[in-house]
Amino acid sequence: MPPTVKVMRRPEGVRTSFLRATLKGMALTFKHMVNPNKITVQYPEERMEITPRWRGTHRMETHADGRPKCVACGLCPTVCPSNCIRLVGGEDDQGNRYPIVYEIDEFRCIFCGMCQEVCPVEAIHVGVHYENAEYTRDRFVYDLDRLMEQDHPTSLLWDPSDPKSE
């Protein structure tokens, strides 16, 4: 049986006034105009404060002389569940192990923060940061220089007042 559509006819000759509805809406607007508890944030002039445990795009910590703290141990690419870290280790002229290539694909990253948690030298961190817009996709593969340039605060990962989540 074919589906049928029942057509409801608008009652003819009945006049509808929108005045009452308009007044009702304007009343709500004026109520919010004088309401002291404003919740709209005037971004970008104003910004919301984000939690210190926020996990955003990465940042590589550096030594005082500008070298990355990373020692290319290979734990972050191993632990990374989305396989977004590419690391090639090597040795510099002073015999220190360092990352020749360190790239994070921020599009593949799921921001779990395990790279920061596993890092034995506190080099790689997820950042307390959210403004990441770029004009091209390839700018989202952060290389070592880019990661070291980042200057936003780094994530705490856990609540300092309750570090064991008890």
């Binding site: 020692v71 290319a72 141990c73 734990l75 220190n96 192990r97 034995p120 030298v121």
Partner: peptide
């Protein structure tokens, strides 16, 4: 120094 040791 397990992070930089090749035997790790």
């Amino acid at each position: 120094d397990c992070p930089i040791c090749d035997q790790s």
